[in-house]
Amino acid sequence: MISLLETAAATAAEHTEEAATAAGHGAEQSSGMPQLDFSTFPNQIFWLIVTLAVLYWVLSRIALPRIAAVLSDRQGAITGDLMAAEEFKQKAKEAEAAYDKALADARTEAHKIVEANRAEIQKELDAAIAHADSEIAARTAESEKRIREIRESAATDAREVARDVTAELVRSFGGNVDQGAVDSAVENRLKGALQ
């Protein structure tokens, strides 16, 4: 197997030498495919392997880990920011709920205060009305009493005046004033009038 390979390599080498000389002759008017010029193969393959090795080393050691790190950092930053945003949103919601609650509390409190004030005022008002009523009643009673007294005094006064006038009339007519008769006569006449 190995010897076969060696002979193959030897013939290939001969061929490539021939091709190389041919290429050297016909470089100006070259018409064949340079791709099939096997004399350049070792050169191309050697430098290709060198290049690929260098590239692979640089990419796998430096470039790709760095890009991967940058990408994961960015992903991390984005996720972190999104989570922070979510948290802030939650906080804002809580704050809104607290605000709403405070507002409702304040409203009920205000309602309560209004109710209490109204009840107090009503009570005061009721008391004032009751006081006024009683005062009015007292004054009315007093007035009525005075009116009655005045009426009564008016009646006695009228009787006195009537007696005196009657006695004087009788005297001026020259009559003899009998106090008792005058009184009874006046009483009789007044009975009808002072009713």
């Binding site: 190389a20 050297g24 004399s39 350049t40 070792p42 050169n43 191309q44 393959i45 050697f46 430098w47 290709l48 060198v50 290049t51 260098v54 590239l55 640089v58 990419l59």
Partner: peptide, 21 residues
């Protein structure tokens, strides 16, 4: 002659490619 180690235009462009990458 182009030996396996000779720096050729292939070498140059391979290096340019590597440098660009």
């Amino acid at each position: 002659e182009v030996h396996w180690y000779t720096p050729t235009n292939v070498t140059l462009w391979l290096f340019i490619v590597a440098a660009a990458i």
